[in-house]
Design a protein around this nucleic acid. Sequence first.
DNA 1: AGAAACATGTAATCGGTTACATGATTAT
DNA 2: ATAATCATGTAACCGATTACATGTTTCT
Lengths: 193, 193
Amino acid sequence: MDVRTICLGLLSKEDRSGYEIKKLLEEGPLGHFVDASFGSIYPALTRLTEEGHVEFRIETQEARPDKKTYSITSSGLTDFHKTLHAPIAPDRHKSDFLFVLMFAEHLTPAAMSDLIDQRLAYYEEHIAEITAEVDCDTTPGPRFVAGHALAIFGAAKSYLENNRHILEGEALRSAAGSIATEPQDADLGTLGE
Amino acid sequence: MDVRTICLGLLSKEDRSGYEIKKLLEEGPLGHFVDASFGSIYPALTRLTEEGHVEFRIETQEARPDKKTYSITSSGLTDFHKTLHAPIAPDRHKSDFLFVLMFAEHLTPAAMSDLIDQRLAYYEEHIAEITAEVDCDTTPGPRFVAGHALAIFGAAKSYLENNRHILEGEALRSAAGSIATEPQDADLGTLGE
DNA sequence: AGAAACATGTAATCGGTTACATGATTAT
DNA sequence: ATAATCATGTAACCGATTACATGTTTCT
């Protein structure tokens, strides 16, 4: 989603400033699959104001810089609903990790093991974060999405744990071993055999 | 990964033309998580040639336009290895589907059900494709990656099947139901309850 | 007759990031 | 002292996409 729509969506829930939108994307549950920098958020907000989709009021704070708090207009809400009901673009999962693994035979065994351990830690970190977040939000949408993220990360972690031997071990320079797709440390089936 | 590195990686396996690289990304297993257009592939190949990382020979074909077949040089291979061992960027999974679901309460029930059915079909399509591909490639890297994709899509599909009720039904306008993270149509546990 | 596959390339545009510019306050 | 947080904004740049330009052959 473009930054414009992300801003519209967040403002549909609550009035916020550009700075707050950025923080929300960094720390909130949205942050796991959307991202935007100040350099795109502020111009988007300016454009949305020109289009009449949002309005702002300047809030003077004590011992803090002035803040422009934006709120969505009815025209903005209509536009947002139109976007939500429009045909959606297919997912784009770009992963340098997976790309590197495609060329596993070019990596030294040490680099490969490091990479896998790092990745496992990365999964665990995210799982812990989302687990903490899932209990904070009780509305269906965010809860579903958080649960989804948990299911995906859990599956990825289990797959990596159960199949890292394909990328390490002797198999790498000879033939391939069996590939298990089981998600929870089970051995209920194999793939490719 | 940038298009430059993608080209280098593909050429490390086999000599290919720009056109063939594009086809490979459209149809091959790489296509599930990398993408590039002609408008980025051809300039990348030109630049790589200037840098001395690849060379090309012009192949005249009967009843076909001339073809520039590129091959990687030792300098290109060294550069590629350096990239593979460098710290990798974190994954970016951008999903308009998930974004829309975050705002589930703004969608009409009919639009929501359509969206979910479409998504389930999308998962099944990908799973069928990858299942077919997984048996073609016997080298560890691609096999691991294909198995990974299968595990992820399988988990996503199961999660959606088991939890779509959160997004549909009455629960949407009132409170949230239980969220199951089980991957294979099982009911062995719940999350958030 | 027309579309699709083969084959390469350029120009305009776009959406975004990074770095820069400014400046107060609070915590280390 | 110095870094971090709060707060907004602009300019330069970058990597990529889309559309354009060209031309043959084969399939429908």
